[in-house]
Lab assay of single mutants.
Amino acid sequence: MSIQHFRVALIPFFAAFCLPVFAHPETLVKVKDAEDQLGARVGYIELDLNSGKILESFRPEERFPMMSTFKVLLCGAVLSRVDAGQEQLGRRIHYSQNDLVEYSPVTEKHLTDGMTVRELCSAAITMSDNTAANLLLTTIGGPKELTAFLHNMGDHVTRLDRWEPELNEAIPNDERDTTMPAAMATTLRKLLTGELLTLASRQQLIDWMEADKVAGPLLRSALPAGWFIADKSGAGERGSRGIIAALGPDGKPSRIVVIYTTGSQATMDERNRQIAEIGASLIKHW
């Protein structure tokens, strides 16, 4: 067993022997301040990774656009098919120029040779490549099948209805392509620590998230040296922004954090800054 596999296998073990965790309302004060600064709703939840206990939450059962955070769930569904012998990570998928959609920095470079399922998941999570996500959605049967996968996990809230990039439209009061912070946090925890996926697939999923290259201005910008984070960000229309993450000190994750916002007129930089400040408060009061 590799060191990384050992780390993920012992996530519940280490967490069980940690000192009790206590909620700190100071972080919620910052979440509410972010709402004021952005002029928009902000949803927040913080779960203990081992027990699933909610440590703090704000608007945990209000719907927010998922945006690209759905790509972690998508690759979880792909990995479940791999575990069941219905898919192979090494299978190569070929596609054409007509398949390319807006923001496809990886797939646009491989029109000639195609990409493997493993490479597509890596591109979808680490670079948020939209064509990679659409190609992977095709392998599982489309958005409705991802929703069905989530329902089978016990998540009857999260739903995907459309493809990239239309799913980022974020129309107010439109339930399409949305989740709730509580539902997303619980589902992410199941994917990373539950028995739904094999140990190898859980490790692969967290490795992809740990290698995320496009979430630097968010929670990662607030992390002290030595902290662990595996995350996936999302951005959408109407001032929408979000991030889902597993993080913790001492090089291992111990909490799940989900943050979503929508309806702001603020710039992307300002949305990023507010999420980073929430992260800084979380870490300060850990």
Results as ranks from 00 to 15, higher is better:
L150F: 10
S122W: 11
L196T: 15
R241T: 05
L19C: 15
I283F: 11
M67Y: 02
G85V: 06
P143V: 07
G85N: 11
R7N: 11
R271F: 04
G154F: 04
W227G: 02
D129Q: 00
N50Y: 13
Q37T: 12
E62I: 06
L47S: 06
T198W: 04
M67W: 01
R59T: 02
V42W: 09
L197C: 05
T198I: 06
I283M: 11
R81N: 13
G76M: 05
L282T: 09
K144W: 09
G239F: 02
G154S: 08
I229P: 00
E210K: 11
S51A: 08
A124F: 00
A15P: 07
R63V: 07
F6Q: 09
A183Y: 09
I283L: 11
N130E: 01
P105T: 06
T27A: 06
H24I: 10
I244S: 03
L188I: 13
I256L: 12
T179C: 05
P25C: 09
F22Y: 10
G248K: 02
K53P: 03
L191P: 00
G154P: 04
T107C: 09
I283A: 08
L137C: 06
D269W: 10
Q88E: 13
A170C: 13
R81F: 09
T198M: 10
Q86F: 10
P20M: 04
R159T: 10
R202M: 06
F17G: 09
M127I: 09
I3G: 06
R202W: 03
A200K: 13
A124S: 10
G239N: 05
E270W: 07
D207R: 10
F6D: 05
A211N: 12
T186F: 15
K144Y: 13
F22Q: 10
M180G: 11
A211M: 10
A246T: 12
S201T: 08
A84H: 12
I3P: 13
E108S: 12
T138D: 12
R238L: 10
A246G: 06
Q4E: 15
S264E: 04
I229R: 01
P105A: 05
V21S: 10
I259T: 03
T198R: 09
G141W: 03
L196N: 15
I45L: 13
H151K: 14
V31S: 03
D177W: 01
I206F: 13
W163Q: 09
G226S: 11
K53W: 09
A182L: 15
V78L: 09
S51R: 07
V257E: 02
P253G: 08
K232V: 00
N272H: 04
D83R: 03
S201G: 09
E35F: 02
W163C: 11
E35W: 01
A123I: 04
S80M: 12
N98P: 09
R59G: 04
H5V: 08
Y44P: 00
H5Q: 12
A211W: 08
K232Q: 00
D155Y: 01
G239E: 01
G85T: 07
S233G: 09
L49D: 02
S201C: 07
L247T: 06
T139A: 15
E108Q: 11
E102T: 13
L160H: 06
A148S: 15
G239D: 02
T139L: 15
P253F: 09
V258D: 01
T112D: 15
P224R: 06
A235K: 02
R271Q: 10
M1E: 01
S104A: 08
S281I: 13
I275W: 02
A246P: 00
G43I: 00
L74K: 02
A123N: 05
L100H: 04
I54Y: 09
K252E: 14
P12M: 14
A200T: 12
L120V: 05
R59S: 05
Y103L: 04
T187Y: 03
E26V: 10
E56K: 11
L192G: 03
R41F: 08
M268D: 06
R220F: 03
K109D: 10
D113G: 11
K32V: 11
Y103K: 02
K232L: 00
L223N: 03
A133I: 00
H24P: 06
L146Q: 04
A276F: 12
M67S: 09
A185G: 13
G279L: 04
R189L: 10
G141E: 06
A200I: 10
D48W: 03
D48K: 04
D161Y: 04
L79I: 05
I256S: 01
R92D: 06
E46A: 10
T112I: 15
H5Y: 12
N272K: 02
G52Q: 06
K252T: 12
G248C: 02
K252G: 10
A182F: 15
A170W: 11
I140S: 05
N134Q: 05
A276T: 10
I259S: 01
L199H: 13
E87A: 07
T267P: 14
I3S: 14
A183T: 12
G194V: 07
M153T: 11
T186Q: 13
M268C: 05
A148L: 14
G242F: 00
I125N: 03
M184A: 07
T147R: 11
F6L: 11
A235L: 05
M127L: 12
L73A: 11
L160F: 10
A132P: 00
L199N: 14
S264N: 07
E277P: 02
I11Q: 05
T267I: 09
G226N: 12
Y95H: 05
I256M: 07
S128C: 00
F64A: 01
L191S: 03
A266F: 08
W208G: 01
P12C: 13
A222Y: 09
E237A: 15
I278R: 00
A34Q: 09
I54R: 10
L160R: 01
Y103T: 05
R271H: 07
R59F: 03
H156L: 12
P253D: 07
V157R: 12
A123G: 06
Q4I: 12
D99E: 14
V257S: 03
R238D: 07
E166M: 14
A200L: 10
N134M: 04
T262H: 14
H151N: 15
L137Y: 09
A185T: 03
A245S: 10
A280G: 12
I243W: 04
W163E: 11
S122A: 14
L205V: 06
R162T: 08
K109V: 12
M268V: 09
Q37R: 14
F6R: 09
L197I: 08
S57A: 15
L192K: 01
K32C: 10
G142N: 07
D33C: 14
G43L: 00
L49H: 05
K144G: 15
S96H: 11
L146W: 05
T179Y: 00
M67E: 04
V106S: 08
L47E: 06
V82N: 06
D174V: 04
V106R: 07
I256W: 01
T69W: 00
F58D: 02
R41A: 09
Q203N: 13
V42Q: 01
A77F: 10
G236F: 01
E277S: 10
A23G: 13
S254G: 12
P224I: 03
V78C: 05
L218G: 04
P172A: 13
W286V: 02
I45K: 01
A84E: 12
R202P: 01
K284L: 13
A235S: 08
C75R: 00
D177M: 01
A245P: 00
K284R: 13
Y95A: 03
I45G: 03
S122N: 15
T198N: 12
K71E: 00
R81L: 09
D231I: 04
L38T: 09
G90L: 10
A124L: 03
I206N: 08
N272L: 02
P25T: 11
M1L: 07
P217R: 09
S233A: 08
K252Q: 14
G85E: 11
E108H: 10
D36P: 05
P172C: 11
S264A: 08
E166L: 14
A185P: 00
P143G: 06
V31N: 02
V258I: 13
E119G: 10
A266G: 13
L197M: 09
L73H: 07
S104D: 02
L219F: 09
K284S: 14
A246H: 04
K32S: 12
I243F: 05
A148M: 15
I256R: 00
L150A: 08
R7F: 09
D113T: 14
K109G: 14
T198L: 09
T27W: 02
R159K: 11
L219C: 04
T193D: 09
L282D: 01
L120D: 00
H94I: 15
D161R: 02
L167A: 08
G251A: 12
T198A: 11
I11V: 12
L196C: 14
R63Q: 08
M209Y: 00
A182P: 06
P253H: 10
T179E: 00
A211K: 13
N98L: 14
C121L: 05
D250C: 12
T139V: 15
G248D: 02
L205N: 01
G234Y: 02
L197W: 03
P249W: 04
Q97G: 12
R92Y: 10
